[in-house]
Design a protein around this nucleic acid. Sequence first.
DNA 1: CGTTTGCTTGAATTCTGTCAAAGCAGGTGG
DNA 2: CCACCTGCTTTGACAGAATTCAAGCAAACG
Lengths: 191, 191
Amino acid sequence: MHQLHSYLNAYASNPVTDEDFEIIKSHFTNKTLRKRQYFLEEGEICKHFAYIIKGAMRKYHVDDQGKEHVVDLYIENWWAGDLESFVMLKPSIYYVDACEDCELMLITNESKIKLCSQLPSFNQFLLKLDERNHIATQRRITSTISSSAKVRYDDFASCYPEFLQRFPQHIIASYLGITKETLSRVRSQVS
Amino acid sequence: MHQLHSYLNAYASNPVTDEDFEIIKSHFTNKTLRKRQYFLEEGEICKHFAYIIKGAMRKYHVDDQGKEHVVDLYIENWWAGDLESFVMLKPSIYYVDACEDCELMLITNESKIKLCSQLPSFNQFLLKLDERNHIATQRRITSTISSSAKVRYDDFASCYPEFLQRFPQHIIASYLGITKETLSRVRSQVS
DNA sequence: CGTTTGCTTGAATTCTGTCAAAGCAGGTGG
DNA sequence: CCACCTGCTTTGACAGAATTCAAGCAAACG
């Protein structure tokens, strides 16, 4: 079964039929990215959302002083893109790039809307995905405003252990809102 | 027109018909809360989500050291509750209480699901609401990990000026992830 | 009234960031 | 094979930011 098909089934209350999946698949295009290539640059409009078949990506923001702040990390079976730009057709304030060579499947907003109205199962999927995202970001905010650097790192490590292997520490540090030096020191403390 | 009806219309691509709205309304129950009353306590399952007709509420988390951390602030035409507990039927880690006397409309998860499958317009509304929430939390995370206390406060003040009038400063400080003393000092600096 | 609640201020402390230097792997080209 | 990058991590010294603890004051409340 196609990777996206089983991914969708994991969310749906009823499995997605083969015909439905063919319709869904026909709305996607394939794309590959080499490590360090951009998927989205600041100022662009995010025309596509990417489903990651293989690889790892990050979304980050560059502030006035030219510093990068990693906002999101993605690996297989996650979605990469800037929703605000995607749905509002606004220039994005984020960069999205590949941290490893990537295989992606891209969808436009028009296709997303069409699929939603055409296939109740796709609609349901999106609702659940948003729900899950909402819950995860809620947790992240709770952790960010409540905890010290050490606790945040430990939470992250226990929540997303595979990310520790996939992303360099300066990127994880930035995701946690601390410097790479602080992360290095925090890691050398015993838990 | 009912406040909830015009609120829903503001989200929908087509207005919600009177019949549809009567169906929607029939799934809600009314509730009032006095200032300081709990809507949800830690350990409870969040059986209802609340649409706020009037009043102000907050969601917060109490850490191991007994410190409160405000995760969300709500006023009229916002939704209060813990989504993770609501959809997963898990005990909540949050408290939700009233910062002012409140008038609420409550809905259960079963009703939400029923309305979703019954009324495409309600489904669409929920998708848009989740989308908007997602965008707002993305912005909040960006601001929290990227900026100093002063900048975060200024961003907050320009984004939600009405909140400054409605919530005491120690609650806003906690929402921003800083202490009330730091907020007080930051406020006395010129912008 | 006295009590509570919210806001401010000060001084000492802790945490985190900044800047600079050094080490270490992996990859490349000579 | 070795020298030299480059990307990534660690360490130290110092500066700056935010927290903690304590005290004081004003407004709101019962």
